[in-house]
């Protein structure tokens, strides 16, 4: 089949937005768009993919797919891929996708292109644009094998509604249990509804200038005002000082992010941090040092003490929102 197979990731009982992004991109490429959705309760979610262009939706549902375990999910997906025989496989470069995608490519014995931000079709092949060096450079990459396995950074492509045929087929998977050696003992997921930094639309981030862990509360308060698509982040200095968990770190040894709005509070703007957030659509910097390198990248700079600016900003935004 000269078509695309996408992997639709399920988290907390919902299809992730990234899945819709890659589905509508696949539809744009032409050819048949097949989707594979795996998870306990996935069957009920499957029809949503038709709205974004899926012509055929393969469902792998069952209690053994409650938690993501790479081997079981890879086996199930590869079974579907062997049926579909796509020329392109698209996945989302989410936290799970970063584990899943190379494992799928390895099982299919082809290369993979990770974390792409733009895709274009040239003849039968997809050429992908991806950041390297945490965004200090971009490469145009072609996967030479078939299928081409490509993961796409969440939020990078956007999506539109284009209806696909949406035929749903439930797949019975024959798992080779002898290869499933990783056993899940416990899963602890914070009750927070905050999106992951890589998928957030707004990030309020703090650096060394925050002076201590307790002061991040005001950044959380500010983020909350922007609604459920906002979260907080931190610089390496703040993480290395132990003020924030590493999962908050933005930059070359943390997450590379591309939100609509990035508010940097007390962050000087080391090169490895700027690489990680330089593609944000709008950057605001609040720092009392007018020489801080962050101001050379910021669309809006406020040179003042963040401990005065941030609380005042919270009040002003509340006023605007009424």
């Amino acid at each position: 089949m000269a078509g695309t197979l996408i992997y639709a990731e399920v988290q907390k009982g919902e299809i992730k937005k990234g899945a819709f992004e890659i589905t509508s991109k696949a539809k744009e490429f032409g050819g048949e768009v097949a989707a594979c959705i795996i998870g306990k309760g996935a069957e009920a979610l499957a029809p949503q993919l038709a709205k974004y262009g899926a012509d055929k939706i393969y469902v792998v549902d069952g209690p053994e797919f409650e938690n993501y375990v790479p081997e079981a999910f890879v086996q199930a997906f590869v079974q579907v891929a062997n049926t579909v025989q796509p020329t392109v496989i698209l996945t989302s470069a989410s936290a799970q996708g970063k584990d899943f995608t190379p494992a799928v490519a390895a099982r299919l014995n082809v290369g993979a292109v990770s974390d792409c931000v733009e895709l274009k079709k040239e003849g039968d092949k997809v050429i992908a644009k991806r950041p390297m060096y945490a965004g200090k450079a971009y490469a145009l990459v072609e996967a030479v094998g078939t299928p081409q396995v490509i993961s796409v950074r969440p939020n990078a492509l956007g999506f539109k509604e284009i209806a696909g045929a949406g035929a749903v087929e439930k797949v019975a998977v024959n798992l080779d249990a002898s290869k499933i050696k990783v056993q899940v003992k416990a899963v602890e997921v914070a009750a927070t509804t905050e999106p992951d930094q890589t998928e957030a639309e707004i990030i309020v981030s703090g650096g060394r200038g925050m002076k201590g862990p307790e002061n991040f509360k005001m950044l959380e308060d500010l983020a909350k005002l922007f609604g459920p698509t906002a979260t907080t982040g931190a610089s390496r200095a703040a993480v290395d000082a132990g003020w924030r968990a590493h999962s908050y770190q933005v930059g070359q040894t943390g997450k590379t992010v591309s939100p609509n709005l990035y508010i940097a509070c007390g962050i000087s703007g080391a090169i490895q941090h700027l690489a990680g957030m330089g593609t944000s659509k709008v950057i605001v910097a609040i720092n009392k040092d007018p020489e801080a390198p962050i101001f050379t990248k910021a669309d809006y700079g406020v040179v003042d003490d963040l401990f005065n600016v941030v609380p005042a900003l919270i009040e002003e935004i509340k006023k605007i929102k009424g």
Partner: peptide, 26 residues
């Protein structure tokens, strides 16, 4: 290799925007 880099480029340079002025932090 199974993937080939066809072109490498730098991200578009980001220009400094405006500094917001005012009498005080508020």
């Amino acid at each position: 290799p199974m993937t080939v880099i066809k072109e490498m480029s730098l991200p578009p340079a980001r220009q400094a925007g405006k500094i917001i002025t005012g009498d005080d932090a508020k």
